[in-house]
Design a protein around this nucleic acid. Structure first.
Lengths: 195, 195
DNA sequence: CAGATACTTGACCGGGCGGTCAAGAGGCTC
DNA sequence: GAGCCTCTTGACCGCCCGGTCAAGTATCTG
């Protein structure tokens, strides 16, 4: 049984489990990492896990939700005081890349979850929010005559494709500086959008 | 023990297993699909599987190898009689998108394999070949002064990011016509490359 | 027809998995 | 110190997985 009421000690344990699991899932993959591995890495009994989570699946969903929430906050903060739609896109890209670099562990998990029928729905929901944001900025730019008049939804996904790929290949795998990658990503996508 | 000598009947069985497994892996995922599921879907005994493959892992690696080989042939054929580097990129994009659409089952598997430590190496090797091709065309375009003078390797990955994302979202998930998606992909990436 | 070779069967095995639970431990409150 | 609630332990359970193999069947060769 999972308890709803947690003391501060309990909340700390929960976070610890979340972080440990995220790291292990990122390193070895979700399926190959057992619950025993997770609690073993913390040196605690298996029961601890099931005190805080109902199942292994629920844990992953929780990781997905938490990480998306964090990324989104970062994006929002970055574009908060920008009025220009193209500048908003640029700031969003830079913020996202910086976040991915700082959270490699989440990146790998998100990539995996996208390929698994069980978790894809949770992920899609998250993704759709970010996509809608980008699409809105693109639409604004089109109205101002500063971007091609093409389906904003499709353009948004093209942009996210560039970001995701560059993040994986240059920030996660190699460890290139964010700025270098971000500069190319911004230049490439903004030109791609141009009318 | 896996036999090397196969009769035509044997080769047919092997292909049958390969195709059935690819479909199931794409639908339910690699780990959640058991060897019993695969042979069960064909209505044959488990021993049949281990007559043709040494392990489940080897089977996936084989699927990866075969699909990459097929995609690559398609790309090569498409750009064979194009001299212009930018046109070669365009043709490569169109061929890739068409292939992905016709082979949704491989697409999902490739996406998964990229997230798994065990299979990522095989995949990377494949990917590097395609990436090197694209990068070469970009370099040619730069020399001709028809593309920005930026790291071709990075630009190539940006392009592949666009392709992969649009393929997944519009060809595999929704079932949009290749031409519509390809037109946007080509326009976006070629503008992105422009100097 | 004999005998080799190519294939097929499915019961079986060891092991590890996700998940449970009775039995406590530690720390509040009154 | 009694009672309570949060948290922890780790042996244990049933299940199913990847993989094996002795036995058998089809097919081809001479």
């Amino acid at each position: 049984m999972v308890r709803e009421k947690l003391t501060s000690k309990g909340r700390a344990r929960r976070d610890q489990l979340l972080r440990t699991a995220a790291t292990l899932f990122a390193e070895r993959g979700y399926h190959p990492t057992s619950v025993s591995d997770v609690v073993g890495a913390l040196g605690v009994g298996k029961g601890v896990f099931y005190w805080y989570f109902t199942s292994k699946d629920e844990l992953l969903a929780e990781i997905l939700r938490a990480s998306h929430h964090d990324l989104r906050r970062r994006q929002q903060a970055a574009i908060a005081d920008e009025a220009d739609p193209l500048r908003r896109i640029e700031c969003g890209i830079r913020a996202s890349l910086a976040w991915f670099r700082e959270h490699r562990e989440y990146f790998a998990i998100i990539q995996f979850a996208a390929t698994d029928e069980t978790f894809a729905p949770v992920l899609r929901q998250n993704d759709d929010v970010a996509l809608a944001d980008t699409a809105r900025h693109i639409k604004d730019a089109i109205i101002q005559g500063r971007a091609v008049d093409q389906d904003p939804a499709m353009l948004a996904r093209a942009i996210h494709g560039v970001i995701g790929r560059l993040a994986r290949d240059f920030l996660i795998e190699r460890d290139e500086p964010v700025e270098v990658v971000a500069d190319l990503a911004v230049a490439f996508t903004l030109k791609g959008l141009a009318g």
